[in-house]
Design a protein around this nucleic acid. Structure first.
Length: 279
DNA sequence: CTCAGTGTTCAGTG
DNA sequence: TCACTGAACACTGA
């Protein structure tokens, strides 16, 4: 579920329910996989009584800034997300929908924070590939310190972007998925960006022409911006996007323009692309 | 029952 | 040494 746009949506939700407020209770599920290197007891101790000063994001990682360190950091893996309730009975979910009737706390809750005003922030993860950690200074410590440019805010100027591609020999799709390159790009966004830039996913990165590299950079930006601005996945995405037609691996899948979509594996991941358009 | 999956890590390879 | 590759991880839902 979570690529950069959904993580950004989760950040906004958390900012809304948590920023400026004191944590009065922190309930952790005992889960040594998701809580990496921290016991539930220590995690609770670190958070309880703290005031949240801000909610930050870099790539697909999130963290809460507190008035006391260490700070909690979050990664959603394949299936994690934030849910919040800010009184009123309305629930905000990081994958865009709003629901009033779901169970509370939701299924697969790993962490539940209650704030002084009664609002709650929950992290769920049904697949346990997500991680919750404690860090003294998240930006300066792994894994966040190892990330490349944030794909939404930090793409370098075209010349430097081209130079970075020249140093990589892997398929361009694999490079896009490398979080040490552009942080926040995931499987469907990599495919979307390559389709819009008209570049085949299997092309070796260093073989891209300057014009292709420039198109790629521009599309990373525009896809990220549009997806972050949309209310949720799919809803609000332009009809011409590959996104709407890439799922399901149908043999006769086509884009809105009628182009035939092919599904192959590149960089170890299912890849949807249009051989007729991408070279 | 089997398989794919919006992600990351790690061992093995060249 | 290091970039790259594919399997492994853990679990749900189709």
């Amino acid at each position: 579920m979570p690529e950069l746009p959904e993580v950004e949506a989760a950040r906004v939700i958390a900012q809304r329910v948590a920023a400026g407020r004191r944590i009065v209770a922190a309930h952790c599920t005992e889960d040594p996989i998701v809580f990496e290197g921290v016991s539930a007891a220590r995690f609770t101790r670190a958070l309880k009584g703290c005031r949240v000063t801000a909610v930050r994001r870099r790539g697909k990682h999130l963290w809460l800034e507190l008035d006391r360190r260490p700070w909690p950091t979050f990664h959603f893996g394949m299936a994690g997300g934030f849910h919040s309730t800010a009184m009123r009975g309305v629930r905000l979910v990081s994958h865009g929908s709003v629901d009033r009737f779901a169970d509370w706390p939701p299924r697969f809750t790993k962490l539940r924070l209650t704030f002084e005003d009664g609002g709650e922030l929950v992290m769920t993860d049904g697949r346990r590939l997500g991680r919750i950690r404690l860090r003294e200074d998240p930006l300066r410590e792994p894994p966040i310190s190892l990330l490349g440019w944030d794909a939404l805010h930090e793409l370098p100027p075209p010349a430097r972007f081209r130079a970075a591609l020249r140093e990589r020999t892997a398929p361009i799709k694999a490079v896009l998925l490398d979080q040490g390159f552009a942080a926040g790009v995931g499987n469907w966004i990599a495919d979307e960006v390559l389709y819009q830039a008209r570049i085949a996913p299997g092309r070796r990165a260093h073989t891209l022409t300057p014009a292709e590299a420039d198109r790629l950079r521009a599309r990373i930006r525009s896809v990220m911006k549009t997806a972050v601005g949309a209310r949720s996945d799919s809803d609000g995405f332009p009809r011409t996007w590959l996104f709407h037609h890439r799922w399901g691996k149908n043999a006769d899948a086509r884009t809105a323009r009628g182009e035939r979509i092919r599904h192959t594996t590149v960089g170890g991941r299912t890849t949807a692309w249009v051989p007729g358009v991408q070279r």
